[in-house]
């Protein structure tokens, strides 16, 4: 097209500046010698050193990763089951309620999910003595519940795209329904399942509100630790922590981008191969 999009391009420029200037500023100040977060006192890496020697931070990080790993994995299993069920079984008793339950956590404000989970756990402890104390288990249960519906959304969308007849073909060739699931359905939707897991993992790793309601004494996740520090104001070691987290995510995204690019090239090559085979 010959038309120039000066306005649109400058909006893109403005938007990306808006996105990245705060992050860049944070990165720069993580190397600040001065304790005063907003005054430049020369280059230093001392905040990184103090970060790595802070046992509290390391413990919180490990706890967060454990919770994210367990909750994302269980959420992926349950969410994938729900996604397949909703895409494949169009009629069963209670389907309307089920599909409502799968969308509701997506739009429920986190505060409400948080207090409802906490009341549930408190009352449960009172009625049946479980959970005796809040911590790893209760946080993980809450994370599974609100991250599984994200997995369901992704898997359901993928299932609705895929050709149903390949599942029928497998069944026709002698496979029982669960064998069809194992041999055909799951391999075909595996990229969606993996991105579902990644999303559930990120959501769990990032959550503050629901975790703050469902956790108990002694179980501080990394976001909770940051939360309690940040409430008191800007501190340079949080800048350092943020820089590390942004760096890890950026590296991850770049690697994922390279893989996607490669897959795209491979697909193009295969198409050419199929085209030649036609001749």
């Amino acid at each position: 097209m010959k038309r120039r999009h000066t306005f649109l391009v400058s909006m893109l420029g403005f938007g990306f500046a808006f996105f990245y200037i705060p992050i860049l500023s944070m990165i720069v100040y993580s190397f600040n010698e001065s304790r005063l977060a907003s005054v430049w006192g020369g280059f230093s890496t001392k905040w990184y050193v103090s970060l790595f020697s802070n046992k509290q931070v390391i413990d919180a990080l490990i706890l967060s990763l454990e919770i994210a790993l367990v909750s994302a994995s269980i959420a992926t299993i349950l969410g994938t089951m729900a996604g397949i069920a909703l895409a494949r079984f169009t009629k069963f008793r209670g389907r309307l309620l089920f599909s409502g339950l799968v969308t509701a956590p997506l739009i429920m404000p986190e505060v409400i999910t948080g207090i409802s989970s906490l009341m549930f756990f408190i009352l449960m402890a009172q009625w049946i003595g479980w959970p005796a104390q809040r911590g790893f288990t209760t946080v993980t249960l809450a994370h599974i519940t609100f991250s599984m519906v994200f997995v369901t959304t992704i898997v359901q969308a993928r299932m609705l795209q895929s050709d149903r007849s390949i599942e029928e073909a497998a069944m026709d060739l002698g496979s029982r329904p669960w064998e069809v699931l194992r041999d055909v359905t799951l391999p075909v939707i595996s990229p969606a399942v993996m991105s579902g897991w990644l999303l559930a993992f990120t959501i769990s790793l990032d959550d503050v509100v629901i975790t703050s309601f469902t956790t108990g004494p002694g179980s501080t996740t990394l976001p909770l630790l940051i939360w309690s520090k940040v409430k008191l104001g800007v501190t340079p070691d949080i800048n350092a922590l943020a820089t590390l987290m942004v760096g890890i995510v950026a590296i991850g995204v770049v690697i994922a981008g390279i893989f996607m690019n490669r897959a795209e090239h491979r697909r193009q090559r295969d198409e050419q191969m199929a085209f030649r085979a036609n001749g």
């Binding site: 705060p22 992050i23 944070m26 990032d206 976001p223 939360w227 940040v230 943020a242 987290m245």
Partner: peptide, 8 residues
């Protein structure tokens, strides 16, 4: 992290 974006 959402929290860190607010913090920035």
């Amino acid at each position: 992290s959402f929290l860190l974006r607010v913090y920035a």
